[in-house]
Computed example of a mutant assay.
Amino acid sequence: MIKLGNEAEIVIAHKLMKEAFEEYRYLEVPSSAINEPLDTLRDSFRNGLEKFIVCYIDGNPLGFLRFNTKGETLYFSRVSVPPYARGRGIAKSMLSWLEDYAKKEGIYKLQCKVRSSLIHNLSLYKSIGYTVTKEEMVTNSNNLSVNIVVMEKLLKP
């Protein structure tokens, strides 16, 4: 079951993100998700800046992602499936759910940013119809520079 997250699930979502991004702690530029405080997610949710979804399988939370809409684009980030839950199609299921949600909201473009060096993640998005639309260097919340690509998928009404 995939559903919009509520305030009571923020702690669960944050835990899933930490577990999923832990493997990026030892990259040359570690992921800022590792040190992202719970309050950042909570404040963003409470202020209406972001929503999130949680995927449950057999009652266990195994996936999370957050998103917001800006104009005609739904931007998502922090797609999180901990290592022990991978290989079950959870990320693809959450992204499919997000596409359905976007269409219901009248939004037909989804967008995310992915580190250029994370080939597995790039392949996942490409396999479900995302294309690279831009390459850039960004400064993450740890104040470190990272090469990323912007990926987009256009949906049919």
Results as ranks from 00 to 15, higher is better:
F67T: 11
V54N: 00
D100P: 03
V146E: 14
E136L: 12
K153Y: 01
S80L: 02
L144H: 12
F67W: 09
R46L: 01
N142M: 14
M151L: 12
E135C: 11
W97N: 06
V150D: 10
N47Q: 11
E72A: 15
S44M: 11
L49Y: 09
F45R: 04
V81P: 03
S77P: 06
F52D: 00
N143L: 14
Y108H: 08
F67N: 10
K134V: 13
A102N: 09
W97H: 04
D39C: 02
S93E: 06
S117Y: 12
E72W: 08
K134C: 05
R66Q: 15
M151E: 03
K51A: 01
P82W: 03
L41G: 08
C55H: 12
G71V: 14
V114T: 04
Y56L: 03
S77V: 00
S96A: 13
T73W: 06
E72Q: 10
N47D: 15
K156L: 01
L155S: 01
K103D: 03
L110K: 03
S145H: 11
N147S: 12
I148C: 11
D58G: 00
M151P: 11
D39R: 09
K70N: 14
S116P: 02
V138I: 08
K113L: 00
D58M: 05
S141D: 13
R86W: 02
Y75W: 11
I90K: 01
L49M: 10
I53K: 01
A85S: 14
K153C: 05
N140I: 00
L74S: 10
L65S: 10
F52P: 00
V146F: 02
D39H: 10
G59I: 00
T40M: 05
K156F: 07
E105P: 05
K156Y: 14
V79G: 15
N147K: 15
R42T: 12
K126W: 04
S93P: 08
M151D: 11
L98K: 04
G59C: 15
E105M: 08
L144T: 03
L41F: 14
R78M: 14
N60K: 04
L74Q: 09
F52R: 00
Y75E: 09
S117N: 11
S80Q: 12
G106T: 07
R46N: 06
R88E: 12
D100V: 14
I119Q: 09
F76S: 02
R86I: 08
H120L: 04
L49P: 01
S77G: 15
L122Q: 01
I148M: 07
I128G: 00
L110G: 15
G48T: 07
P83A: 12
K103M: 08
G89R: 12
T69A: 15
V146C: 03
M137K: 12
E136A: 09
V146Y: 02
R78C: 06
